[in-house]
Structures are given as C-alpha cells and as structure tokens.
C-alpha cells in the first residue's frame, strides 16, 4: 500500500473516537504491534536524541524499500513510533522523503512533532528521512 493510503487508513481508525482518552487507548494498543528492533541494535548508536523517553530505531534496505524496526521505553511514544513505522516502513526512499506525514495533524497528534516538545519525535521523523536519503545515495552508486 502507498503511504498516502496507509495514512488515510490511520486517520479513519482514529476518527472513530472523540475522547482524548479513547484516542490514547488506541495509541497504546497500537504500540504493542511495533516491529521490534533486534536486541543487537538496541544500543546507544540507535537511540534518537532529544527524547524524554528512549526510542531506538533501526532501518534496513531490501529490494528498493526501507524497513524500520524500533522500540521505546514509554508506551505512548511507542504508539506514535508505530504509526510512523506503519506509514513509512516498506516504502521507497523517494516516497519516504516526499511525504509530509500530515495524518499526525489530522488525528490530533501534531503537538508531539512540534520542536518545543521534548519527546524527540521530530528527531525520529528526521532520522527516518535521513535513512531514506542515505539508502537512496548508496543505491545510486
């Protein structure tokens, strides 16, 4: 599925709930489905900086697509991480670099991406895009 289609799907999943607590319950549940990072990559090298909670992120490049795995020590963070992975994992570097992840705004989670938040998810998005950029450059050689 294209990232735009996945993002639209996520928006509709959240649209079912008006109450913030229900939205966060859904997010917490979604966090449990996060493609788990391999224990050997759960090192300081894979830590995203600037997070109040810890986020480890790893990426692999297979057949022209980028696949992400991750983990976090906070369950809400993990839920948001999983949304990002659902939206971006398995996509081509070009598609990852092109998308603006507008769905986070539409489901009311944009605040987590503002530079004033200390949870580092902005850094996480930047890191995911950086992986895409590096894989694209390497593939071009």
């Amino acid at each position: 599925m294209k990232t735009e289609e996945i993002q639209a799907q996520i928006i509709s999943e959240f649209a079912a709930f008006d109450d913030w607590m229900d939205k966060y319950n859904l997010l917490i549940e979604m966090g449990k489905d996060t493609p788990m990072i391999d224990a050997r990559f759960k090192t300081n090298n894979h830590l995203i900086s600037g997070c109040q909670s810890k986020v480890w992120l790893h990426a692999e490049y297979v057949d022209g697509k980028v696949f992400f795995t991750a983990d976090s020590d906070a369950v809400i963070t993990k839920g948001i991480v999983n949304l990002l992975i659902r939206a971006l994992s398995g996509q081509s570097p070009d598609d990852i670099l092109a998308t603006d992840l507008g769905f986070l705004d539409q489901i009311g989670l944009k605040e987590h991406l503002s530079p004033t938040r200390s949870n580092g998810l902005l850094s996480m998005v930047q890191q995911m895009k950086l992986y895409a950029k590096v894989f694209k450059l390497k593939a071009g050689n």
Binding site: W20, M21, Y24, Q52, S53, D73, A74, V75, T77, S118
Partner: peptide, 20 residues
C-alpha cells in the same frame, strides 16, 4: 510506568505536572 506516559495522559485530563 514511564513519567512521559503519565504526564501526557494527565495533560489530556487538564492536569499540568512536570515530567523528566
């Protein structure tokens, strides 16, 4: 429970605390 998780949910219930 991670302080960030607790602080985020308390915030959504109108309660301002500090976490970290």
């Amino acid at each position: 429970i991670h302080p960030f998780d607790m602080g985020t949910l308390l915030d959504k219930m109108g309660i301002a605390v500090r976490t970290g």
